[in-house]
Design a protein around this nucleic acid. Sequence first.
RNA 1: GUGGGUGUAGCUCAGCUGGUUAGAGCGCCGGAUUGUGGUUCCGGAGGUCGUGGGUUCGAAACCCAUCAUCCACCCCA
Length: 438
Amino acid sequence: MAVHLAKGTRDFLPADMLARRQVVHTVQQVFERFGFEPLDTPVFERIETLTGKYGDEGEKLIYKILKRGEGGVRGEVDQALRYDLTVPLARVLAMNPDIRLPFRRYHIAKVWRADRPAKGRFREFFQCDVDIAGSSSPLADAECLAVLHTALNELGFKGFTIRLNDRRILADLAAAAGAKDSQSEKSFLVALDKLDKIGRAGVDGELAERGFAADAIETAWEALTPQADDAATLAYLGDKLGNRGKEGVAYLGQVRDAAIALGVDPARLTVDPTLARGLDYYTGPVFEATVDEPKVGSIAGGGRYDGLVGVFSKQDIPCVGVSLGLERIVTVMAELGMLPEAGPVAEVLVTVFSDDQLGDSLAAANALRAAGVRTEVYAGSPKLKNQFKHANARGYTWLVVVGPDEAAEGVVTLKNLRTGEQQRIAAAQAGARILESR
RNA sequence: GUGGGUGUAGCUCAGCUGGUUAGAGCGCCGGAUUGUGGUUCCGGAGGUCGUGGGUUCGAAACCCAUCAUCCACCCCA
């Protein structure tokens, strides 16, 4: 039968896994360096936990699970695969009121979206989230920016930009453009978000189509007049916007100052009032990281969501967090040649000379492993030639042969396949020799 | 969800306007005096031409459907 992967999914063969594991390891080290603690949650949640959090577009992308028994036959749904790691966190916070706040957690796990696959986009993918719960201070937002900045740096990214905006600024801009309700506000944001793609004229066209009046749009554009730098942009916006927008501007200024004090390179930060992020639950600052070289959209995104936990419990807990998209990071790193080539996990292949000599080979393998050397022992005993080919094809550096001569002397032949040199030494010494070559 | 492209050996692809036994490179397997690879030489295996219909004397090539995949839009990590 013809076999296919489910759309938008991938197998990770050993070479992929080794590269990905290294990326995850780096990210995890950075997360812990900032004091974030690990958390995991079930991959599926009750459906009502997830619905109503992601907007109409997002809602369609939730993978739903049919009920057991007759309910499944009737097409009823009671559970769904998690869409992100933020809503599960909010649920955990609501269910565990004794968690000491502020609480920092990281979560690296798979999420699922019934999206149409594209470059760097899958239906099953990993996110690496850090969030701080229980702090309304701009310092918490700044810490998230700092951890994001550090992680991207340590992964080796050179040309990335973190764009910043605030939901309150966007709300005022939408209002200026004539948005009357959250529906038209969202409509405005969707159009505005395309600015760098379709240009001002294009956005004007879209807004007109969406029913925005030309003179109102003009008012919004005035507030968006480009300024020399972030400080000027914030000052100018503060001047043009209403009270809500002013609040956002002031807050964003504090976040930015704190982030820079935490070591974030100011050249990497850009206040961009046209940055719109779709998720419904954001309330304050929103941010997004992009790389300029391969076009894969954003590689990380986040923001503040002060109302989400309150949806699940009486007590509101202000939260802010950022999510790194592992899939896109790996895609970009692969394209830029930032991932090292993975060799075999084992360092040495112990060949099997013949069935008669099997015991000697196994003893040699034991000695190597006892010495801490990652060792493959050839399963079987085809011609030595083929075992050599196997070692070479898999990229081994070291190879061990134990034939009758070696066995008689109580040694093994250790060969370096790169240089071609070989010597007869005791198995334990062979182990030491390999270890010192690491 | 909308529009467009692609689908031929394990991999990358060639097969002109339909015509007899479908090709190449790489890879794979075997061999070149019987304890040694990676180079070279010789030989070999391997394809229901995505799948199902249709047009035709005849289709990998034309038409329809379907599945898969890629690109753009939408949205997003």
